[in-house]
Amino acid sequence: MKTTEKETLNVLGLPVQETEVIAAELNILLSNFQVYYQNLRGIHWNIRGKRFFQLHVKFEELYNDAQLKIDEIAERVLTLGGTPLHTFEDYIANNKLTIGKNISKDTAAVHLIIESLSHLLQIERVILDETAKIGDEGTNSMMSDFIKEQEKTIWMMKAWSEEEI
């Protein structure tokens, strides 16, 4: 390996400049996941109606999963040498999701989840493409896992929302 090449790689063997860009993109994902998480908490608390018991439990499952993913994203930012965003100001500045306020109707809550996951998938696919280009298997694998789970959740939410009452 040439000295110039060695100097451009970080301790993980990844190119420094591109890794900084990926860490910044992960912070955007982190911000959006924080908003998604808070949306899930809100609909969990405020859901009403005949499907309360079913949805209350499902929304709790989803926000617990989101909380774990938030931690994984922040730890990946740190692994790549970055600093994870951690203020509401940063989260709102980087947010691309609809903020769900006082949603208590089941169909509106499920629609918000589908819409939010669709936006998260867009961010994750950009990161997936960028990490593939530089051989960042750690981040790439994490995005692949997130995408697979979220696609399935969207399918399930769409199936639920299309059921006849």
Rank of each mutant, 00 (worst) to 15 (best):
E137D: 13
M143K: 05
I103F: 04
E130Y: 06
T107E: 07
E115W: 00
L120C: 07
N102L: 02
M143Y: 00
S141E: 00
V126Q: 08
S118A: 11
I127M: 03
K105N: 12
I127Q: 08
K96W: 02
E124H: 00
L112N: 11
D145E: 02
E130L: 13
A132L: 07
N102T: 09
V110P: 03
E137K: 15
K96G: 00
I99H: 11
L112M: 08
H111I: 11
S116G: 15
L128E: 12
I134W: 07
I114N: 03
T139S: 15
Q122N: 09
M142P: 01
S144D: 04
I113N: 11
I127H: 02
S141W: 04
A109D: 01
K105V: 15
R125G: 03
D129Y: 10
L117Y: 09
K105G: 08
D145L: 04
L112E: 08
Q122K: 11
S118P: 07
L117S: 09
I123E: 01
S141C: 00
T139R: 12
G138S: 14
V126L: 02
I99K: 15
L97R: 02
A108E: 14
Q122S: 08
E124Q: 02
I134A: 04
G135A: 04
E124K: 03
A109F: 07
I123P: 04
S116D: 11
G138Q: 10
S118Q: 08
S116Q: 09
G135Y: 03
Q122V: 04
S116W: 07
E124D: 02
E137N: 14
M142S: 01
F146T: 06
